[in-house]
Structure formats: structure tokens, C-alpha cells
């Protein structure tokens, strides 16, 4: 190597990933566990967050929520606020996903130091959110029974980078032709050994197993 050759070896990131890693540093600095929650519209993202809040509120766990929506509505964030937790509504202005700079902006409005768990409810969509890192510690997808058992085959990308899969609305299994084996086989090909929790936000079935996974990751009480 000539003396004019300078060795660098630095990771080249796109602007979104760069801000995502700054977001991660903020989560770590405030000792906040963070989740990017993705699903199609109506899969039960808000219901799942509410079920989690209700289960943990008595233990004094502080949960902050960032609600992403394409329209300027506050329906979901109002529900979170009614449950007694801080929520920020982010209007993506028609965009079909949240990106890292939007999260950065929302973090400025949250008392992050007091928050043990931050949940980002991404825009209801199975395609675009998969391509944008937000900087969260984990990525979770909610699939729901009425969507059908072929979704892993049709939307493979969102299943690839996941840490946890929630299968919601299992109370509807008796009414819907949903082949659980076929569904889980499709997931297994894309993401072998993926941690999966079948739940019902309506009856509460399965929620305890999810909470066991989650509470292990929450910071020891601040």
C-alpha cells in the first residue's frame, strides 16, 4: 500500500440508517426498550399496545407510544392517552411508512428518561415499513387470523428481519379457514426459529407468554 493510500474501513449508511442509529443511541442513553410494531391495517396493533399497557400499568411500567398514521387523525393516540400513557401522533402526510427522521422528531416531544418501553405503531402496511430501520431494539409484526394464512408467502420481506411474530385474533379460529401449519411453515422458511406468540387481544389468551418475553427485556425499575 502506498503512503497515499489511506485505510478507512467505515460502514457506509444511507441517511435513514444513520439517523436510526442515532435514535438507538438515545434509547440506550435513557435506558428505554423500544419496539417497531408493524402490521396490516386493522390487525390489532393498537389493541395489542393497549393490552400490554393494561397488563403492566400496575407494576409501574411507563410506556410511551408513537402512533404513525397517513392521515391527520388522533384516534389511536387518544386511546393511548386515555389509558394514561404519553402518546405522540405522527402524521406521515400520505407516506405509507414511518422513517427514522420522523421518529427522531417524535422523540423530542416525549419524556424519554421516564419511559421504560417505547412502542412505535407503524403505518398499517406490510410492504414499505419493512424497508426503513427506525433504530428500535426489536421489530415485531402482528399477523391476524382474518387476513388469511398465505400472508408470509405474499409479503416475504416483512417477515425476514423480524424478532417476534404475534398471531392475533385467535378467538376467531373456529370461524375462519386458517391453516396454522401452512402459515407457520411459510414463516419458518423466511425466518427460521422466529419467536411467535399466538394471542387474542379480545379474550386475553396468550398475552401472558408475550409479557414474559417482554418483561425480561425491560430495564430494571428506574
Amino acid at each position: 500500500m502506498s503512503e497515499n493510500r489511506i485505510k478507512i474501513v467505515e460502514k457506509v449508511m444511507n441517511a435513514n440508517d444513520r439517523i436510526a442509529s442515532q435514535n438507538r443511541q438515545r434509547f440506550d442513553a435513557s435506558n428505554t426498550y423500544s419496539i417497531n410494531l408493524m402490521a396490516s391495517p386493522g390487525a390489532g396493533k393498537t389493541s395489542f399496545i393497549l393490552a400490554t399497557i393494561h397488563a403492566l400499568i400496575d407494576q409501574g411500567v411507563q410506556i410511551g407510544v408513537i402512533e404513525g398514521d397517513t392521515a391527520p387523525v388522533t384516534i389511536d393516540s387518544d386511546k393511548i392517552a386515555a389509558a394514561g400513557m404519553p402518546a405522540i401522533q405522527v402524521n406521515t402526510g400520505g407516506q405509507c411508512h414511518l422513517d427514522a427522521p420522523m421518529i427522531e422528531g417524535a422523540l423530542d416531544q416525549l419524556p424519554l428518561d421516564e419511559i421504560d418501553l417505547l412502542v412505535v405503531e407503524n403505518v398499517g402496511n406490510l410492504i414499505c415499513p419493512a424497508a426503513f430501520e427506525l433504530g428500535t431494539h426489536s421489530k415485531i409484526v402482528i399477523a391476524s387470523i382474518p387476513e388469511g394464512d398465505d400472508k408470509p408467502y405474499k409479503y416475504p420481506n416483512i417477515y425476514r428481519g423480524l424478532d417476534v411474530l404475534i398471531i392475533n385474533k385467535i378467538d376467531l379460529l373456529p370461524y375462519i379457514d386458517f391453516d396454522m401449519d401452512y402459515f407457520r411453515q411459510g414463516v419458518e422458511i423466511l425466518n427460521p426459529g422466529l419467536v411467535t406468540f399466538p394471542v387474542s387481544c379480545k379474550t386475553g389468551e396468550g398475552i401472558q407468554d408475550w409479557l414474559t418475553w417482554l418483561t425480561k427485556r425491560l430495564p430494571v425499575k428506574k
Binding site: 500500500m1 502506498s2 497515499n4 493510500r5 489511506i6 485505510k7 478507512i8 474501513v9 467505515e10 460502514k11 457506509v12 449508511m13 419458518e188 422458511i189 427460521p192
Partner: peptide, 21 residues
């Protein structure tokens, strides 16, 4: 088997530069 895990292959690094002083 198709159950395989990617260990590396997604990287994008700036390795080095050649300069004139």
C-alpha cells in the same frame, strides 16, 4: 435444506482512499 441463515453479505464499506498531498 432451504433453512439457511445469512452470516455476512449485506455489508457496504468504504475500505480506503488514495490521495494526493
Amino acid at each position: 435444506s432451504a433453512r439457511v441463515k445469512v452470516i455476512s453479505g449485506n455489508e457496504f464499506n468504504l475500505d480506503s482512499i488514495e490521495i494526493q498531498r
